[in-house]
């Protein structure tokens, strides 16, 4: 019954939340958390964002790397792949076994009249299953194809970007009812927001 109530609550929350958060002055377009939809542009300049994939990381063996756990300040360690990726040649590998930074891949479409550059994370908010929210620290944006900072995106063009961020601490009881609201900006004022489908921690043994 508890699970059922939780599910019903979440369904209700999912249905109501976009309507509640949309500012009528922004045009009122809403997101569909279940299908990775997009929201209306902020400040009238359009970046259309479409969810591709994402996970909340895996901080099983590096709880100090999780959001709010007192992770080292300064230049963020390189995310995802390096946390559990190949050791650089000639260097002792510092990654540990179940330690992957969280990430979201999204498709960005430039609906403005000119090319856009200087993509940056404005805000990443985790919406927990009880409706509470948590601001997460963005670690960087790269072009998913080149792994480099995104080059200028011409008007009308689209590109897949990867946003790395510091995910929430591991929740052993996570049953997949958390999602993100992510706001991206580019150029002077172009912006877009994305509400993801439910996201999960990265499984340690994906099989």
């Amino acid at each position: 019954m508890k699970r059922l109530m939780t599910t019903l609550s979440l369904a209700l929350l999912s249905a109501l939340t976009p309507a509640c958060i949309a500012d009528p002055d922004d045009g009122g377009a809403t997101a569909d958390a279940g299908s990775g939809g997009t929201e209306a542009p902020v400040n009238g300049a359009a970046l259309t964002l479409t969810f591709v994939s994402g996970h909340l990381g895996n901080y099983w063996d590096c709880p100090g790397e999780a959001n709010g756990a007192g992770a080292a300040a300064g230049a963020p360690r390189e995310a995802a792949g390096d946390a559990a990726g190949a050791c650089p040649p000639g260097e002792e590998c510092v990654s540990i076994i179940n330690c992957e930074a969280a990430m979201v891949m999204l498709e960005v479409e430039n609906e403005t009249d000119g090319a856009l550059s200087d993509f940056r994370i404005e805000r990443i908010v985790l919406v927990n299953d009880d409706g509470t929210t948590e601001d997460l620290e963005g670690l960087g944006i790269v072009d998913a194809e080149t792994q480099a900072p995104p080059a200028a995106l011409p008007a009308g063009a689209s590109r897949t970007l990867r946003v790395d961020f510091r995910g929430p601490a591991r929740d052993p009881n996570d049953d997949g009812n958390r999602f993100l609201r992510l706001e991206l900006r580019a150029g002077e004022s172009a912006a877009g927001t994305l509400e993801t489908p439910p996201l999960f921690s990265l499984p340690a043994v994906a099989t």
């Binding site: 279940g34 969810f51 997949g176 489908p197």
Partner: peptide, 11 residues
């Protein structure tokens, strides 16, 4: 289900 075979976007 959150990411596979979505009408728009996803894996």
């Amino acid at each position: 289900l959150s990411s596979y075979g979505l009408p728009d976007g996803g894996w």
